[in-house]
């Protein structure tokens, strides 16, 4: 799989198929990442689409200082934060909440694929958004602390501290449910 930079370069040269490849490769991971902010899989999907539209219309320059996935997730994070800034309170009905749970579990099974990671992902739903983001980026997207710091626009030291506190919180949650995750 291309890391996305070459596809984006082809898109900038006028090949729309390059961006279709980007959507194909990074759509699910971006939705699940944005879902950590919105806690609504449908809203996260819409915000992911807005993220792609923003890149397509404005065609921002990718300098290559980080990976394309880090750059793309940083744009998605800004879009999600803008959405949350505009919609501080999102009312979700009970039926819609059930549907959201089903869609989210479907996407987890499609994207995570590993049963342990799926259980871990269900465990982080109860964490605060910042802990969910850093655990998702580190344990599900395989980002380094530097990349996480670039996406979350924090320093590496802050990311390390945030990651340590997120693990401690996740351990507590897993212990409550009788799981003991050896990687933590």
């Amino acid at each position: 799989m291309d890391n996305g930079a070459s596809s984006y370069r082809r898109f900038l040269d006028g090949d729309d198929n390059g961006f279709i490849e980007i959507i194909k490769d990074y759509k699910d991971g971006l939705i699940l990442y944005i879902n950590n902010f919105t806690r609504n899989i449908f809203t996260a999907e819409d915000l992911a689409e807005d993220t792609f539209v923003k890149i397509v219309t404005r065609k921002p320059r990718f300098s290559g200082k980080s990976s394309f996935k880090t750059w793309l997730y940083a744009i998605g994070r800004n879009v999600a934060l803008d959405y949350l800034r505009r919609h501080s309170v999102v009312e979700v009905s009970t039926d819609e909440l059930q549907q959201i749970r089903e869609e989210e579990e479907s996407l987890e099974a499609q994207y995570i694929k590993k049963e342990d990671n799926i259980q871990l992902h269900k465990a982080i739903r109860n964490l605060i958004p910042q802990y969910r983001q850093v655990i998702w980026l580190v344990y599900f997207e395989d980002f380094s602390n530097i990349e996480v710091a670039a996406v979350m626009k924090k320093s590496v030291r802050s990311v390390e501290t945030l990651l340590y506190r997120a693990k401690q919180s996740l351990k507590t949650e897993l212990n409550k449910e009788g799981f003991e995750y050896e990687k933590l």
Binding site: F19, I23, K27, A48, E49
Partner: peptide, 9 residues
Amino acid sequence: MADAVFRRR
């Protein structure tokens, strides 16, 4: 999603 993205573009 790609069709929606390019249509909106």
